[in-house]
Design a protein around this nucleic acid. Structure first.
Lengths: 237, 237
DNA sequence: CGCGACCTTGACGACGTTCAAATCCCGTGG
DNA sequence: CCACGGGATTTGAACGTCGTCAAGGTCGCG
């Protein structure tokens, strides 16, 4: 939200060193392709709270998250917000059919992305069906998550929502090499509420309730899973 | 739900005559490819209420909806249901990464699909990047709808949900060549409720309220939009 | 005609929201 | 080192929307 202080590294970075090399779209490219691909993207840094792109903006770039966490959200005209997902390293953002982004994205904490101009990226894909296949895989994975989240939003109670969120978030961090039972929550309570279709008060109360029951411990910027089994029972998978 | 009475047309159908030729995945194929493609799919009919595939089933086929309406849904262990979408002619179903379907699909009224065995379809795609691109387009379109629906489920009131649903459903039918202000609703009230994250009673009450206010007229198997502007205002786009 | 599925309507209550205030936490500056 | 200030979070109390439970109505079909 503060005035944009975007840093662009002119070059001096290499895909082969990239932290998300194995999990991102680029995992579909071989060494030779990667060298060519390297020239298409530039690393860009965003400070906490900065907006990377907004809903309805014309799409000029695609983004590969390298580091940090982003919130992806849509706003109703009256200001109500729904967070449609959190992006983590390896996630690929910006695909759409309309030529405009269909959600907004901003940085939660410091974020590094690999930014690709739309046209050259599109041209590069033309001749690399395996890259297209990889992008398609990521889209299908997102779609599956989106459907799971619809179930959560439409059919689960507040307790279930929060418990399911904590387990799912932990699972994603584990897949990226996180720790076992201390779960960092870089997003605010308001973000969590807007993700789960609740109010900030309900989220706060539910956290407190879970803590009172010995299921979790509330820490600064996260929680500790004291009784994973109990949380799983609440999530009622 | 009744014992399966699936009819398979052995052959005698041609893609070139297909009603969804222009809008479905196959729109990406030229005449020569289409003749080859023709041998991969077979038309299958399902009666009202029959299940085409179930969540967690191993994926053996993909499906192209030719005619009719299907509900796509997920169930929680205790029986709560969330409908994640309604499929109409031109929709392509069955893509997933896990090798298992991640939702169930059944026919609402009589349905005709074009069914493709997974393996040969996969092989056919290998050498047709434009078909892959088309599939990717459909996935991205679905993703965009899914995000819109998350906003509806998480952040809209019952009135807004119902009004938004009516307008969106009408829009989809219009795109398929439907009529202007009489909107057929082949799905039950329960289906609508499970799609909107409401109960059947709330849906029914909201319909009645809209009718009392002169916004719609409730018909058998559908509604008539008496005052589209009023409904749009309620939807609070 | 009568059964059953689907839909509507009403009364009531619960879960989550709203509104309000207190508390915590951390960075800043005296 | 500690006081201050502002944002985020927690807590409390009252309220309202929507869910629950129950009854009644409508329609199609055997």
């Amino acid at each position: 939200m503060k005035p944009s202080v975007v840093t662009i590294e002119p070059n001096g970075h290499f895909c082969s060193d990239c932290a998300v090399r194995a999990s991102a779209v680029c995992s579909s490219l071989d060494a030779a392709e990667l060298r060519e691909f390297e020239h298409l993207g530039r690393r860009v840094h965003f400070a906490s709270g900065e907006t990377v792109f907004s809903e309805e903006d014309i799409t000029t770039s695609f983004y590969n998250v390298i580091e940090g966490v982003m919130r992806l959200y849509k706003l109703l005209p009256d200001g109500r917000r729904q967070i449609v997902g959190f992006a983590l390293p390896g996630d690929f953002l910006g695909m759409n059919l309309s030529g405009r982004h269909n959600f907004s994205a901003d940085a939660i904490g410091a974020v590094t992305v690999c930014q690709f101009a739309k046209a050259p990226f599109g041209r590069f894909i033309e001749s690399r069906p395996q890259l297209l296949r990889r992008i398609n895989e990521l889209a299908i994975r997102e779609l599956s998550h989106a459907r799971d989240h619809m179930v959560l939003l439409g059919r689960r109670s507040a307790d279930e929502k929060v418990a399911t969120f904590l387990l799912g978030w932990r699972q994603r961090l584990l897949a990226l090499g996180g720790s076992l039972d201390t779960v960092p929550l870089p997003m605010s309570r308001q973000d969590i509420a807007d993700y789960l279709g609740l109010t900030i008060e309900t989220v706060s109360r539910t956290f407190t309730k879970l803590e009172r029951h010995g299921a979790i411990e509330i820490l600064h910027g996260g929680i500790s899973l004291r009784d994973p089994a109990r949380v799983e029972a609440l999530a009622a998978a």
